[in-house]
Design a protein around this nucleic acid. Structure first.
Lengths: 156, 156
DNA sequence: ACGAACGTTCACAAATTTGTGAAGTTAAGG
DNA sequence: CCTTAACTTCACAAATTTGTGAACGTTCGT
């Protein structure tokens, strides 16, 4: 079970997520309530509160978990909601846009008529395509979710 | 110019590519011929042949560059072709599939009727969606390329 | 076959990243 | 207000990743 968490975490790490963030996330993902306090996470992973703090900051910034205060306590709960994956699209959008812009300056530097300039322009074109399709994809995801949810509550 | 290469490389690195691989790739990308020998790369980046070798192995494995022998010499040329970006789709497909499978074992471990099990099932669903759409995307890219190329050679 | 030009591999060193402990900050509860 | 619980921050240590130099194949030209 703890092994499962580590396996999932390892793969998230391979996909580019920071190691600790992956572990914390996997931990919450596999928790029944889908929400844990920093202490609970630390206990399950055998890591210091400091490590959890850092990971949680990252995960919250990326929008994969939300922080919520437990009223009447200074504890905080970190919650994942399974519908938050769409954040990935937003992430990607920004990443691609930045890359496109950086790439594009090269056309100016190398000259639009040089072979290198043309190659870079083509590359930019690909990423531009990717970015537009990314938006389309997000839309398709929402449609998918909508259809799915309608199918699940046929009576309402 | 060399600064441009480094900027592009830095961003590729942020996107998850190994640092040296990013630099080598950016270097070739910005080269007029779109192809360099190991020595040339080493010289431009001020790195040892060993470093180039490692980076090149990775890039070739991922399919972003091809190696070609210069006939009549023991030199090798590493070439990027600007139409190779589609390799990204294949990469992603494999990554997602692996993750899906790993995730899915969790449903068995936690029970399909548990809250955690359901959450994981939903997560798997998202990635499954992503994988299918990834395939569709690749198709769309080819269509896009085809239309573009037809538009460019109207007479033929 | 031999020598030289290239690329590769491997053990090790440098650099970077990551996690820890301790001190600091904030807010609840008396 | 003062205490204490919970999280955060920061300097530093541990661990990991990354790049180097040297020794090792390979292949071409003679």
């Amino acid at each position: 079970m703890s092994r499962y968490v580590e396996r999932v975490a390892a793969e998230l790490t391979e996909m580019g997520m920071q190691r600790m963030a992956s572990r914390v996330f996997a931990c919450i993902l596999a928790d029944d309530a889908g929400a844990l306090t920093a202490a609970e996470v630390g206990e399950r992973l055998h890591v210091s509160p400091a490590a959890v703090s850092g990971a949680v900051r990252y995960l919250a910034a990326v929008g994969l978990i939300t922080r919520e205060r437990e009223p009447g306590s200074r504890r905080e709960r970190y919650r994942m909601e399974s519908d938050r994956w769409y954040q990935i699209f937003a992430q990607r959008e920004g990443m691609i846009r930045r890359f496109e812009q950086t790439l594009d300056t090269g056309v100016g530097i190398l000259g639009a008529d040089s072979a290198a300039g043309r190659r870079i322009a083509e590359t930019t074109e690909f990423f531009s395509f990717l970015r537009e399709e990314n938006g389309r994809l997000e839309q398709r995801w929402w449609d998918y979710v909508k259809r799915r949810d309608e199918a699940r509550t046929p009576g309402e």
